[in-house]
Amino acid sequence: MVSALKDPINFLVLKHMNKMKTYLSWFLLMISPAGVFAQDQVKAMSDIPGFKSKLEEMSKAVQSISCDFVQEKSLVVLSEKIISKGVFFFRKENNIRWEYTQPYRYLIVISNGQLFTRDDRNQKLYDIESNKMFGEMNKFISGCIQGDILRNDKDYSTEYFENGSHYFVKLVPRSEKMRAMLNEVQIWFDKKDLTVSALKMIESGQDYTKIDFINKKLNTEIPLEKFSFK
């Protein structure tokens, strides 16, 4: 790192890393699988157009989502898991708040074309619109929440499955570069209300990040202040 700082090119790489890191974090955050559901037997989805249609309806009807989440980072080679917990809020259009409470407080807010992060020592504000990557990331996040991502045939090949309680969609990035970082994205939709129950992002090497969304409340009043940058 020392040498890198003396080298302007490498320093730029490091400078870029901060933005890249946040982007990739979000990307990965959106792509992890669910252990609970993984134990259930899944079969090929019998009515894919029906599922897509129901998802479309849900997407139109849902104005807001608030829920708790449990994030599990699994380091397969080391047989270790790191658990984080927090609260999640979504309000149309594209207002998102991730509030980590464990193992420490960390906040991510996306609103009005900007991304804000804060912990007990630092806070940062990024302009999504001025950064193509952030723009894509934002589309990805809201796309997962609202199911729009399933229309993205260009970037992902998609497979559809189901079990008794859930629809399960597997997304594999088409880009080799993306696959080097991320092998597969799994999204689990609750059959009762078509909301996302879990996301799993499987990395190369089989490490994964899985997020379970629990205690979901739909269309409750979420004040806009929740998405302010403070």
Binding site: L28, L29, L78, I108, T209
Partner: peptide, 10 residues
Amino acid sequence: LFITETGLKI
């Protein structure tokens, strides 16, 4: 291992 808060492995 260094990972982001959101699980991304750096």
